[in-house]
Amino acid sequence: MSTVTQSPTPSTSSATRSTVNLCTFRLHEFMIGIDVTLVQEVLNRQDATRIPLVSDVVQGLINLRGEIVTTIDLRRRLGLPLRTPDDPCMNVVIRTADGPVALAVDTIGDVIDADESLFEFPPPTLSGPHREFVTGVFKLDESLLLLIDLDRVLDPSTIKIKTEVPA
C-alpha cells in the first residue's frame, strides 16, 4: 500500500558521510523537506474544483495538462493555522504509484543537499505539525528542516469521506 516509492529515512548510525537531496518549502512558520526525486513539478496557485462531501484536507481537483490531480491542503493536513486568501500558495506535484498528487504549500524553497549526520528523530516535545507525519529533523545552520512522511500524508484511509448528508 506504499504510495510513495521511496522515502528518505536516513539512519543516524551511518558511518559514511552521505547526503540526501531534499526539496524544501515553507508552510506556516516551518521549513519542510521531501525527497526531491519524488517531486514532479511545482505550480503556481491554481483554482481547484471543490469536491463536496470530502474532508477539507482535500482542497480540490486541478487540471494539470489534461490530467486531473487531487490537491491536498498541507496546512490542514498537518493541523496548522489556515491560510488566508492573501497568503501565497503554490502546489508541489508529487509522483506516486497512483499518479500525481499536488500538495498546497506556502512558498517553495531551495533544493538542498542535507548531510545525514545532521538528522535526528523528532524530539518528544515536538509541537506544531501533527507528530505522526514527521519522521525527523535536519539541524541546518539557519533553521530546522522537518522531514515529513508522504506515505502517511497521502494515506487515503486517514482522509475522511462523508457518507451522510449533512443535517
Binding site: T49, L53, V54, I68, T70, V101, P156
Partner: peptide, 27 residues
Amino acid sequence: VKPLGRLLKGASGFAGATIMGDGKVAL
C-alpha cells in the same frame, strides 16, 4: 471521463471528473 484519484476512492456521488472548455475541472 477521467477517474478520480485513489485518495478520493470512497467519495460516493461521483463517477469521475472531466475537464471543461475553460480548462477547469468538473465532477
